[in-house]
Design a protein around this nucleic acid. Structure first.
Length: 418
RNA sequence: GUGAGCGUAGCUCAGCUGGUCAGAGCACCGGACUGUGGAUCCGGGGGUCGUGGGUUCAAGUCCCAUCGCUCACCCCA
C-alpha cells in the first residue's frame, strides 16, 4: 500500500494533472514568468522562519528529519518560502524587477487526509518579486483566475481581503483580545487557543457558538483597522480587478494561515468539491525575504492545488478526450511471425507508435485487439507476408486494406497518418 | 490530534436473524472461429473474507483489540 495520504498517479488521472499544469504554464509564461524547480526538501529553518513558528504548518504538519550530519531538513510544506530563498541565493535582485517565477511540484503536510487534502499533494506556485505595486497584486489574482478559467472552470468565487500592515494587524489583534477576553468561556475550545495565538482566526471559525458571539458583540472587521497605505493599496487592487472584469467578493473574515502575509489576501473557491473548497489562495508578503536573512524584497503570489482543481473539473463534468492509441498494431498470424512483428515494430519506431501481439492471433481476434487499443492501423504478418517480406495494412476507420513491402511501410504510414 | 462510517477476487459489489457463504458482474486468458471489425456463447485462472484474539458444535456473519481507508473537525492547496 502507498503510505497514508499519498497515491500513485497514472492513466486518466495523471493526464488530467499534466493538462492542468500545462495550462498554467501557458498562462503564467505568457505573463513572463520563469519556471523554477526547487528541491523538495530544504533546511528546516527556511520554513520555520519563512512560514512562521506559530503557524499550524510549522507546529504540527511538517515532515522533518535529520540527515547523517545531524542537520534538520524538512519536506517542503509550501512553495513560497523556497522560491524566495532561491531568489535571494541566485542574486535575482539584480535582474530587471519585478522577477516573476512559477513552479509546479509536490508539497508535503502531515495532516489527516480527507477529500481534497493529501499528505503529498501538488501545487502550482506563482510569485512576483521586487515591487510593492498593487498592479502586481491584481495581476496575481488575474493569473490565478485565468489559469482556472482556461481549464474551463466556471463556478469560481474570488474572495478578497486585506490583512493590513503588521502594525494594523497588531492593533486589530489587541482589539479582538480586549473585546473577547471577557467572554473567553463562551468560545469554543479551538477559539480559546486562537485567542492566545492569533485572534484573527476566530473570525474564520465554523463554530456556530463563536459566530453567534461575534454577531452579538458586533465585532468590527479587520478592514476597519487598515492604515492609510494599506487602505489605498486595497482600493487600487479593487479598481484594477474591476477594470479587468474579474468578479470578486470582499470577504472581511478571510484570514491567511501563514504569518508572512501583509495587505492583500485572496482565495479562489469552488462550491462543489467538499469541505476543502479553496482551489487556491495567495497574497502579499513584503517581509518574507528579511525573515530569511535577505534584504527587503516585496512580493505577491499564489498557489493552487492541482488535486483540488482536478476535483472541481470533475464536479463540472469535464471529460478528457480518449487516450490516443498506437499508429499501428501488428498481428502475427503464425508462430514464426511473432519475431518478425517485433523486428518490423523496431524498424518503424520511433517515428511511429507501434505495438504488436506477443502470441499468434487469428485475424478476427487480432483486429478486435487492435480496435480495443484504439490503433489507427492493424498490420497482418502471416506466412504469405513472411515469404515475400511484406505486410498487410488495414486502416481500421475505413476498412481499406493494402499489402506492400515492409520496406515501404514507414513511408506509406507516415503519409497516410499525416 | 478528535469524531463518525466502512474493510469479501484487479475493479464494483451480493452474502437476511451465525449452519455448502467462498459468489455475481466487469476486466483478463482460452475455445467456438483456416486470413479480418470492439458482438455472442462456452470454459478458465484468481480471494489467509484487512489482521490478531475470543464466544460457539459451527464465524465474512457475534464480541474485543489492532491496522487501514473514507468523510468531517482543526487548518489549509
Amino acid at each position: 500500500m502507498a503510505v497514508r495520504g499519498t497515491k500513485d498517479l497514472f492513466g486518466k488521472e495523471l493526464r488530467l494533472h499534466q493538462h492542468i499544469v500545462a495550462t498554467a504554464r501557458r498562462v503564467l509564461e505568457a505573463a513572463g514568468a520563469l519556471e523554477l524547480i526547487t528541491p523538495i526538501f530544504e533546511e528546516t529553518q527556511v520554513f520555520e522562519k519563512g512560514v512562521g513558528a506559530a503557524t499550524d504548518i510549522v507546529r504540527k504538519e511538517m515532515f522533518t528529519f535529520q540527515d547523517r550530519g545531524g542537520r534538520s531538513l524538512t519536506l517542503r510544506p509550501e512553495g513560497t518560502a523556497a522560491m524566495v530563498r532561491a531568489y535571494l541565493e541566485h542574486g535575482m535582485k539584480v535582474w530587471p524587477q519585478p522577477v516573476r517565477l512559477w513552479m509546479a511540484g509536490p508539497m508535503f503536510r502531515a495532516e489527516r487526509p480527507q477529500k481534497g487534502r493529501y499528505r503529498q499533494f501538488h501545487q502550482v506556485n506563482y510569485e512576483a518579486l521586487g515591487s510593492e505595486s498593487p498592479i502586481l497584486d491584481a495581476e496575481a489574482i488575474a493569473l490565478l483566475y485565468e489559469s482556472l478559467k482556461e481549464l474551463g472552470l466556471r463556478r469560481l468565487v474570488v474572495k478578497l481581503s486585506s490583512v493590513g500592515d503588521p502594525e494594523d494587524r497588531a492593533r486589530y489583534n489587541a482589539y479582538l483580545r480586549e473585546l473577547l477576553s471577557p467572554h473567553r468561556e463562551a468560545l469554543s475550545e479551538d477559539s480559546k487557543e486562537r485567542l492566545e495565538l492569533n485572534p484573527m482566526r476566530i473570525l474564520d471559525s465554523k463554530s456556530e457558538k463563536d459566530q453567534a458571539l461575534l454577531q452579538e458583540l458586533g465585532v468590527r472587521p479587520m478592514l476597519d483597522f487598515l492604515g492609510e497605505e494599506a487602505r489605498a493599496h486595497l482600493k487600487a487592487v479593487e479598481r484594477h480587478l474591476g477594470r479587468l472584469s474579474i468578479p470578486y467578493e470582499l470577504e472581511p473574515a478571510l484570514v491567511r494561515g501563514l504569518d508572512y502575509y501583509v495587505r492583500t489576501a485572496f482565495e479562489v473557491h469552488h462550491a462543489e468539491i467538499g469541505a476543502q473548497s479553496a482551489l487556491g489562495g495567495g497574497g502579499r508578503y513584503d517581509g518574507l525575504s528579511e525573515l530569511l536573512g535577505g534584504p527587503r524584497v516585496p512580493g505577491v503570489g499564489f498557489a493552487f492545488g492541482v488535486e483540488r482543481v482536478a476535483l472541481a473539473l470533475e464536479a463540472e463534468g469535464y471529460g478528457l478526450s480518449e487516450e490516443r492509441g498506437p499508429d499501428l498494431y501488428l498481428i502475427p498470424l503464425a508462430e514464426e511471425a511473432v519475431e518478425a512483428a517485433f523486428y518490423l515494430a523496431e524498424r518503424l519506431r520511433p517515428r511511429l507508435r507501434v505495438e504488436y501481439a506477443l502470441t499468434p492471433k487469428k485475424p478476427g481476434k487480432g483486429v478486435e485487439e487492435a480496435l480495443k487499443r484504439g490503433a489507427a492501423f492493424a498490420g497482418f504478418l502471416g506466412e504469405d507476408e513472411l515469404r515475400t517480406e511484406e505486410v498487410t495494412l488495414k486502416r481500421l476507420a475505413t476498412g481499406e486494406q493494402v499489402r506492400l513491402p515492409q520496406a515501404e511501410a514507414l513511408g506509406f504510414l507516415l503519409s497516410a497518418l499525416a
